[in-house]
């Protein structure tokens, strides 16, 4: 009797697992002229929201397609593309020479699709009276030369510096455009994503950080840099000093008519531009 109950339990477990699997709305992988129904997207956390919104939009129109999006950093996106484990690499920086070389050696031809423009607002807590800084001041804060808000016209409070992890394109952009090869002080906190930067800044009155334009909302205050405040207009006109394009890379230009092609050119369609704008980035055609 006892053994039989035990067996029932096991049978039930197996059966329910099976039922679950069957019940799931299965998408049968079918090869057709439109290419694979599976599109794997990997890479930047900055481009992530755009990629996710595109993926959902596209899957809404084509229910047979499964697009997976991971947000693991620009470098990881490049790596995955080179290794052939993803179809689209989101990147918030351009590919590096070494990466190109490695890709070509592996027979992968990276093609860049610029999907949007992004500024890199320097953000502080809204209670911080400081309104604007110069690029030099930001650099001095991050190198540790300026350690107190008093030195840039704020109250006598120690500055808490927040930076992105070194695996992000956002970090590289910041390092290139602001730090100019100087090193970030070791007591800087590093966090893994744009959202985390905003969260840390929003909960820490003495904090300073930087994040993509689409991640900045009312809970933090974007500083003017060299007298220019980051917004759509100043980013697209290039007046805001820390701006950059956002990329999607594919292996070669995708064959016309394939799903992959449709996906990576979504940003050129009016819907795609609207999505980009609504998320908070600047559409490339916005001139």
């Amino acid at each position: 009797m006892k053994r039989s109950t035990l067996r029932t339990v096991i049978l039930l477990a197996v059966a329910s697992a099976f039922a679950l699997a069957v019940q799931t709305r299965g998408v049968h992988a079918q090869e057709s002229t439109a290419g694979s129904t599976k599109i794997v997207v990997d890479g930047s956390t900055t481009v992530g929201p755009i990629a996710k919104a595109f993926a959902e939009h596209y899957m809404g129109l084509h229910p047979e397609v499964n697009i997976t999006v991971s947000e693991s950093g620009s470098g990881n996106g490049a790596k995955s593309l080179i290794n052939g484990v993803c179809d689209v690499a989101d990147m918030s920086r351009f590919m590096k020479e070494r990466e190109f070389k490695a890709a070509v050696e592996k027979g992968v031809m990276p093609v860049a699709h610029v999907v949007a423009m992004d500024g890199l607002p320097i953000i502080v807590h809204p209670s911080n009276p400081v309104k604007a800084l110069t690029v030099q001041q930001v650099r001095d804060i991050y190198t540790g030369k300026i350690t107190n808000w008093r030195e840039v016209g704020g109250p006598n409070v120690r500055i808490v510096k927040i930076s992105r992890d070194t695996n992000s394109g956002t970090y590289e952009t910041f390092a290139k455009l602001i730090m100019k090869k100087e090193k970030i002080a070791p007591d800087t906190e590093h966090v893994g994503s744009n959202g985390a930067v905003r969260q840390r800044v929003q909960s820490t009155p003495a904090a300073i950080g930087y994040a993509g334009l689409g991640f900045v909302d009312r809970t933090v205050k974007a500083l003017g840099i060299n007298g220019v405040y980051p917004d759509r207009e100043s980013v697209r006109s290039g007046r805001y000093p820390i701006a950059r394009p956002l990329f999607m890379f594919t292996d070669g230009y995708p064959a016309l008519g394939t799903r992959l092609h449709a996906f990576v050119t979504l940003h050129l369609s009016p819907k795609g531009q609207e999505i980009i704008e609504d998320i908070g980035f600047v559409p490339v055609t916005d001139y």
Binding site: G75, I82, N167
Partner: peptide, 13 residues
Amino acid sequence: AGEMGEADHVTGS
């Protein structure tokens, strides 16, 4: 965990 993303083994850096 945090830096694996950028470090690319293809270039042997």
